[in-house]
Write a protein that binds this DNA or RNA. Structure first.
Length: 413
DNA sequence: TCTGGGGTCCTAGGACCC
DNA sequence: TCTGGGGTCCTAGGACCC
């Protein structure tokens, strides 16, 4: 079988965009963000700066680090444009984030030549038309293509020949595998497993015991290059959520009520925009020491109304706090809605005897958009998000990241 | 010594049903 | 006094990914 799966991954994406927009930043260590590093240029990474790191720590590692506030709408535009270039070669594109996508070019080699040529053409076009570096991996499976693009970075191309797959794979460190994070890496290291080849030689029962059954079996399969995953051009969201870091605030109703209203507003509006509602509501509370707890409830009827979501979330937060009476300070609140369903499917599933159901007060609350939500959605359609609702600023939620970054991080529902 | 925001999937125990 | 098996759903926590 031929290697026709591509994984294309823009290099240090946000930082590269900043260096593109401002030539004086090129060749210099820069970080996007302030309180927290959202992205670092390769020059900064060389000092150990990485995304997610606190600004203070980054500055300590790299005294000459230049912080820039992001041009978030440019990230969206350029990310879309790069993925669109991939899409010019094949419709079989699976986008997995703003700067990353898989593609299967099996059906278009007669038009554009072998996969390696297509990969080179993509890289050339992204560079010439957008001015950005992008790395591409080409292989027979998604897992291998993804690893190949990591190995190719920065600004490179790696093609894994079908005849040399295990050779390529087995010398690489385990943490390059999809599904091996810090914990798994540590547990594997404890039994002397550092490379993918060593992992492949480890008995299945041993992996199951170390990492759990599902993870063990998955990794064993990947280590032997058995990756059944196919390109999925569309996927269905399983949950929608929002969170907000608060600094250190008293675990008090006057603090969390308004914050929850804002989060609920964001989530519920997104759900309604896609005609979705959800049955399970989960609230997370993080305390001052960064430990966090969750409380959830599964309802009989899916909801998408802002006020109902906020109300339920508040009850869950109450419950969480009641179970931890010693905690007086909270540092983050989160809400998530899962068990999502489309309105239309919902109506198909409604039992007969709807008449009786419908007359019971409040019984259709979850299905119908409340009049208030409807009005808010309409106003926003015309005048934008800020025109109405529970504004973050008004609630004192001066987040550590700009609002535009949240929007960027949202996945399509 | 202190990581932000948005996600997916897995595990384990308990409730409940047949 | 205590014995069987199988399945589904819910809840809480955790690992991992971008």
């Amino acid at each position: 079988m031929e290697a026709t799966i591509l994984h294309a991954d823009l290099d240090a994406f946000y930082a590269s965009v900043e260096q593109l927009l401002d030539p004086s930043l090129r060749g210099k260590p820069i970080a996007v963000g302030g309180g927290v590093v959202l992205a670092a240029s390769y020059e900064a990474k060389a000092f150990g700066v990485s995304s997610g790191m606190s600004g203070r720590r980054a500055r300590a590692l790299c005294p000459n680090l230049i912080f820039v506030s992001g041009h978030f709408s440019e990230y969206q535009r350029l990310g879309d444009a790069a993925i669109a270039i991939v899409g010019d070669f094949t419709p079989l594109v699976e986008r997995i984030s703003i700067d990353e996508a898989f593609a299967d070019v099996a059906g278009c080699t007669h038009l554009f030549g072998p996969p390696a040529d297509i990969a080179r053409a993509i890289r050339r076009r992204v560079r010439s038309e957008l001015g950005l570096p992008i790395s591409v991996g080409v292989a027979r499976t998604k897992h291998l293509a993804k690893i190949a693009s990591q190995v190719a970075k920065p600004d490179g191309l790696v093609v894994v020949d079908p005849g040399a797959e295990l050779e390529f794979l087995h010398d690489l460190p385990v943490e390059l595998m999809w599904g091996v994070g810090p914990v798994a890496k540590m547990r594997l290291a404890e039994v002397g497993v550092h490379t993918i080849g060593q992992l492949a030689q480890t008995p299945g029962w041993s992996l199951d015991r170390l990492l759990g059954r599902a993870a063990g079996e998955k990794l064993a399969a990947l280590a032997w290059n058995r990756d059944p995953r196919e390109i999925e051009t569309r996927h269905r969201a399983r949950s929608a959520g929002a969170q907000s870091a608060l600094g250190k605030r008293p675990a008090d109703e006057t603090v969390f009520r308004p914050a929850l209203c804002h989060l609920a507003d964001r989530i519920a509006a997104r759900l309604r925009a896609k005609s979705l509602s959800g049955r399970t509501v989960t609230a997370r509370v993080r305390f001052a020491d960064l430990r966090s707890v969750t409380r959830s409830i599964t309802l009989d009827t899916p909801i998408s109304a802002t006020t109902i979501l906020a109300e339920i979330a508040a009850e869950l937060v109450h419950k969480a706090l009641a179970d931890h009476p010693g905690e007086k300070t909270i540092s983050l609140l989160a809400i998530s809605v899962s068990h999502l369903i489309h309105y239309r499917e919902l109506q198909l599933e409604l039992p007969l005897g709807l008449g009786d159901e419908g007359r019971r007060p409040g019984s259709k609350k979850g299905i119908a958009r409340s009049a208030a939500d409807l009005a808010v959605d309409k106003i926003r359609e015309r005048f934008g998000w800020g025109a109405v609702g529970y504004g973050a600023v008004a609630l004192g939620l001066t987040g550590s990241v700009p609002e535009a970054f949240r929007t960027l991080a949202e996945r399509e529902l």
